[in-house]
């Protein structure tokens, strides 16, 4: 309530360097505090208001449009190096409301709230009539594909047994019929070759996450499963932030990377 004219705000342009700087601070905060789904990148600044704050400082209120990248939230790759998920892959947009305090030249994110939505089927169809749409992560085909892909990964693991942490996305392709999935796994205290009851396996205190892509083809004569996983550097037990984490490491079971292509992936 504007008592005595104390509550005043200004509205700089959305593309002002000042506004973009604050949006950048907010985007870093959002990605640093994202532990599931995919990293996001700024697409458009929708609105900005700057409130005077007593006794000093200013509070920026921003509405930001974001787009999903193909880097998982746990992937240590800097978001600047991540690819924006294209419309043909069924892009996902986000709307974020953020409040950032600027005081003595320092920025502090006060609040950040984001909601995300996949692009409409019509928009995807306009760009790519035959591209598969995003399926629900609890879709039966997606669930089966993740289970099969994880089982295939564990069958070839020479170390830990890996548990499913998150099904990140799934697409059911009609022709030729197959299901594509992306999911997150984490190492447990069980040895993959010796596990008899996966239910008793517990995640390691030092979390080691991996991001997997898999396909499952169900045929009359059998099935075909493909999976490849990128294992990330272990995270200390009390890790509350992903900042400062080193890059992905090569799994001991992985083939040696060639010097020309030092891919950090552990691929099975």
């Amino acid at each position: 309530v504007p008592l005595g004219g104390g509550m005043t705000f200004r509205q700089p342009n959305c593309d002002d360097p000042e506004t973009e700087q604050v949006a950048g601070v907010a985007m870093n905060y959002i990605n640093d505090n994202l532990f599931q789904s995919y990293k996001v990148i700024l697409n458009q600044i929708d609105k900005v208001k700057v409130w005077n704050r007593r006794p000093n400082g200013e509070v920026y209120e921003l509405e930001l449009d974001t787009l999903e990248t193909t880097c998982h939230a746990l992937d240590p790759t800097p978001v600047e190096n991540c690819t924006v998920r294209q419309v043909a892959e069924h892009a996902v947009e986000g709307d974020c409301d953020v409040q950032v305090l600027k005081q003595n030249g320092q920025f502090t994110v006060l609040t950040a709230r984001c909601d995300s939505n996949p692009d409409s089927a019509e928009d995807v169809r306009k760009v790519c009539p035959n591209c598969p749409l995003l399926a629900q992560t609890n879709d039966t085909s997606v669930v089966v594909a993740v289970e099969k892909a994880l089982a295939a990964f564990n069958a070839q693991s020479n170390g830990s047994y890996y548990q499913l942490v998150e099904t990140s996305r799934g697409q059911v392709v009609p022709v030729p019929p197959y299901t594509y999935v992306e999911f997150v796994v984490a190492a447990t205290d069980c040895v993959a070759k010796e596990v008899t009851d996966p239910a008793v396996c517990k995640l390691l205190a030092e979390k080691q996450y991996g991001f997997c892509k898999g396909t499952h083809i169900q045929r009359l004569g059998g099935e075909d499963v493909k999976v490849s996983c990128t294992m990330f550097q272990t995270q200390p037990p009390a890790a509350g932030s992903k900042a400062g984490g080193p890059g992905p490491v090569v799994d001991v079971a992985a083939p040696t990377s060639s010097p020309a292509n030092p891919a950090p992936a552990a691929v099975v």
């Binding site: 342009n13 787009l67 892009a91 692009d119 928009d123």
Partner: peptide, 27 residues
């Protein structure tokens, strides 16, 4: 100064402070 009916509008680009530019594509 308000324009009178029939008068030409002010020349120059329309200023749209917000929303800002689209960096990738609109969903």
């Amino acid at each position: 100064k308000p324009a009178k009916p029939g008068m030409a509008g002010a020349a120059g680009p329309l200023v749209r402070p917000c929303p800002g530019r689209i960096r990738h594509f609109k969903v």
